[in-house]
Design a protein around this nucleic acid. Structure first.
Lengths: 338, 338
DNA sequence: CTGTTAGCGCGTTCAG
DNA sequence: CTGAACGCGCTAACAG
């Protein structure tokens, strides 16, 4: 059975293609009688308009592109949920592209969007990305885009972030108040603004408490989990005084956890750990892990909302539409005391 | 700056549109000289062919649709990673649709695919879905589809699953060998074949060990986490003899964990828990959680591969292409002993 | 209220 | 080797 098209409906009903088209779009210039006839037959035959013909004609794809590093990660999963939901509300479709944190792949993907495949873009940039010309080319083509979480600062468009500086500050303050004096800071990429902001908050908090940041306690992780654990163990051994760890991303918190156990460092008695993380299962960890949860779902929704406001009203996105959402510091007590 | 099209390239070069088109597709009937000229200009102007015009003409969308319940869940995240990767290898695009486990939404989404928006479909059906007519209509239209994980048995197409029966059996055996005699089985939906298979494996394992399954120890969870915890606590209180819990899905394992702690049941001394789960962080849990990890990434890849084999060679998908992948039972020791 | 006509941008005949 | 012409399926301007 072939897909049904307007022509077939028209023939069947002895009407012209355009009449059928208008009847289906419920145009005011069609009589109620023919509308009913047309719509009924369409339903019977299971007519579905060809979206590509329609896109070609209207120069609208009813599709947005989402470009993210990866999806095997609670943060981006939740964000996608939010995005898909808002897209559906607006009767839009969602194309997903994963960069695997590779700048080259990101460039290839983004460049392709110049084809008109999507009406707008939501992006969280790859860790290594330094050169943003692929994005700026799209801006020249007036394709609306919104960055979320991992944004590039130098773009005049909306960016949805969390209060990375503040929560970096808070997290450190939390460790300091718990008595830590030698806090290691673990981050992933040097190039990501979120990492830098969190680090800045961390350093400022230290200074505000009269401590001098020790560069030796700063560790850049890699993309290899096991190797990260080794690096952290070495860090702990080189600096036995370390009594707190601030992990900028979830995976580094996990590696820290394992590193401490491996070295027999008790958590939280010897070393306290705090981390950015959206894992619900953190509730189960004992010793407890204090986490800073980002409102991932809300970020996805908010970014999508701004994008659609632009797409549907055909207006440019202003940097002023940017938002900084509040993250949520979650302290947990050891459940052993229950 | 408007998107560049063939016509503009042709004008600029004093060539016809068709020549330019052929030059760009590297046709053998175009001289090397003009090919070079055309391709260079295309690169300079950042020409990207309009995918919708192309789709319309070739009757191929170069797009697949992925229909899943949700993505905020490690299993589906990993699966998407696999799918996206294979799609990219085949130069295809990936549209994501979430059903939120709602049969009605699933039907709406799937029905829309009759439009030709996608060349093929990968689906994991919604928990409540009982009526599969929306899928069968697509099959009449000869749109290739592959089910993975949550499959519908009654379809003559490929299905990628894990060895649910076997691992259900194994999981139970594991608890029995650890000394459990009163094992609660927690499942989500009555309608999903994976849940039924796991349960069947569970029951058969019990019987094989000379035990009679007790219906009172069977619990159907809801979509509400907190309520599930309450249900589990009540179950544990009604049946103080329970010394093992087999959670069919991750979220029920988490609720069980919390329920036990809340009631002061020690894990694993009083109650042992085993669960299907893909959470890497399970490594950190202490007391340890024995998990059955599904090869989610591989399932995504395998499902996508079969789909593309059909799409690219234009051949129907045979049920014989189905695969049952092996899941992985991961035992962990308490790290407190380190 | 309905039909005719003309393209959206591309790929593929058919001519030369 | 290149160009002209057609049509994929749909929408919209223009007639009547």
């Amino acid at each position: 059975m072939n897909p049904v098209n307007l022509k077939q409906l028209a023939q069947e009903l002895n009407l012209s293609v355009s009449t059928v088209s208008r009847a289906l779009s419920d145009s005011y210039e069609i009589s109620a009688a023919t509308k009913a006839k047309v719509q009924q037959l369409a339903r019977e035959l299971g007519y579905e308009p060809n979206p590509y013909a329609s896109s070609l004609r209207r120069q609208k794809s009813k599709t947005i592109g989402v470009v993210i590093p990866e999806v095997a990660n609670n943060f981006f999963s939740l964000a996608i949920n939010g995005i898909e939901e808002v897209a559906r509300e607006n009767d839009y479709h969602v194309l997903i592209y994963l960069t695997h944190d590779d700048a080259q792949q990101e460039a290839t993907i983004v460049q392709h969007f110049a084809s008109g495949r999507v009406d707008g873009i939501l992006a969280s940039v790859a860790g290594e990305t330094q050169d943003f010309t692929h994005f700026s080319k799209l801006q020249e083509r007036h394709i609306p885009m919104v960055f979320f979480d991992r944004v590039c600062e130098e773009f005049a468009t909306a960016k949805i972030t969390t209060d990375d500086y503040q929560s970096g500050y808070q997290a450190t303050q939390h460790l300091l108040e718990a008595g830590c004096r030698h806090i290691a800071h673990l981050l992933i990429s040097d190039h990501l603004s979120i990492g830098q902001k969190r680090l800045q908050g961390h350093l400022d908090a230290l200074r505000a408490h009269g401590l001098t940041p020790d560069p030796a306690l700063l560790l850049r992780g890699t993309s290899n989990k096991d190797y990260n654990q080794t690096l952290i163990q070495e860090l702990l051994q080189r600096n036995p005084a370390i009594d707190g760890i601030f992990a900028s991303v979830e995976t580094l918190a996990m590696s820290s956890y394992l590193a401490c156990r491996h070295l027999g460092r008790r958590i939280p008695e010897d070393v306290k750990i705090i981390s950015f993380s959206n894992l619900e299962i953190a509730d189960l960890l004992d010793p407890p892990l204090t986490t800073i949860a980002q409102p991932a779902y809300e970020m996805g929704r908010e970014a999508a909302r701004i994008l659609f406001k632009s797409i549907l009203k055909n207006r440019p996105i202003l940097p002023a539409q940017s938002q900084e959402l509040k993250s949520n510091l979650i302290k947990r007590k050891s459940t052993a005391t229950l």
